[in-house]
Design a binder for these strands. Structure first.
Lengths: 230, 230
DNA sequence: TTACACTGTCATATATTTGTAATATAGCTG
DNA sequence: CAGCTATATTACAAATATATGACAGTGTAA
């Protein structure tokens, strides 16, 4: 995925810049909002991957209210939120989590701590996407029903082709050598010829080609194969 | 319905409390168990609507074993189970689902993710339980009158075929291995050969075929069988 | 008791999948 | 372009998995 975008909702410019600097150094993109109405705009136009939200904000609406509201709306329901607060009382923490924040950082906090929490949350939300049903490039693999669909048409695959596609679709945009594929799809300790992989790739491509999805499996000459939408 | 009751089987008090807090905030009631024997008691006296089950539990019996056992017993057979695990390997996921867990959450998980999966499962199981009469693909099963209809024609089935069809029709679009089917249709303490399932599937198909409904029972080679309209 | 329905196991028939090898094609280097 | 290497494609026989039909043991109702 491209570099994640983080929305920083914080009214104090000094704090804002400090956070921004930290984020930039870690390779994140970021946008800011100084109050709740502005934050709402950024949510809509910038579509951030995570929100850092100050507990105390100017205006009628506190950060807490805003967080609660985000949870109510479909578009923002699954957005990870980290609350920033000067307070440290257990009660507040519980109230914060109660409202739907995913994590909680107490000021003053170290850049390292902030980044660790951001990273953890982004990882988690990424995992949440990793469902039983996964779709890429018009191809859908459902491991619960053990099915592959191109659009809405069923594709019949043999067991090995199914496992191969399942591995590919869960590990896109990366080259794997034939040996690596043997290890991870067939399992370790198999005494099978490298070239057998070619044949199974061929079979998989053949099954996908009527739907134009064979382009997803790409040959990287001298190295192996890659599964990618591009 | 009253607020659903959730059994949390987890040996670490910290994790247990964290989950409990999440559940309370979402309006669920909950009880806990720290090991398998305790869980068995809670199942019997509290009658939960759903079980959150840690993969690794102290004692001789792992969470996995427990899940499997639950599937064999009449009273707990249809209880939704979500497996909690620290592991993330694809293989484990498959083994977990194989054993009969309905869903699978990897630690660390966000409260939101957990709640989403709980909600989805409760919705599913609620739907399934509500209906005495259930129809899919022109096939109607009426558990009250213990009858099966294709269109408006009665289909005569033996007891095992009826149970098998009943299980299938209540759990569509999902593959089940022969072992899982033995656990969930035949029940506990059976020492029956895998392949016997084939024979009963055959008998069921034969009974359904005059009405064209045999297509609903699909073979998933290398895995098991699936009941699906598509 | 007989007649009958039902179940689980087995033997056999079919169907599908799999790894390998042979051959064709494509890509690269000089 | 020639010569070399890597990949694609096809064919095939062995290995696997499933489907099917028959049978014997069980229990049940008449």
């Amino acid at each position: 995925m491209a570099s994640p975008l983080i929305l920083v909702v914080e009214d104090e410019p000094a704090v804002r810049d400090m956070i921004g600097l930290t984020l930039e150094q870690a390779g994140y993109e970021w946008v800011t909002a100084g109050d709740v109405p502005e934050a709402r705009c950024r949510l809509a136009d910038a579509r951030p991957d995570l929100v850092l939200l100050d507990w105390m904000l100017p205006g009628q609406q506190s950060g807490l209210d805003f967080a609660r509201q985000m949870r109510r709306e479909e578009l923002t329901r699954d957005l990870p939120v980290i609350l920033l607060t000067a307070r440290d009382a257990e009660d507040d923490k519980i109230r914060g989590l109660d409202v739907g924040a995913d994590d909680y950082v107490t000021k003053p906090f170290s850049p390292r701590e902030l980044l660790a929490r951001i990273k953890a949350l982004l990882r988690r939300s990424g995992q949440a996407d990793d469902e039983d049903v996964i779709s890429i490039g018009g191809l859908t693999l459902d491991s619960t029903s053990h099915r592959v669909l191109a659009g809405d048409e069923n594709i019949a695959l043999g067991p090995t082709e199914f496992k191969l596609l399942s591995f590919f679709i869960h590990h896109p945009d990366r080259v794997y050598s034939r040996d690596q594929l043997l290890d991870r799809v067939w399992g370790s300790n198999v005494y099978i010829d490298d070239r057998t992989v070619d044949v199974h790739v061929r079979r998989l491509r053949k099954a996908l080609s009527p739907h134009g999805c064979d382009r997803l499996i790409q040959t990287v000459r001298g190295v192996g194969y890659r599964f990618s939408e591009h």
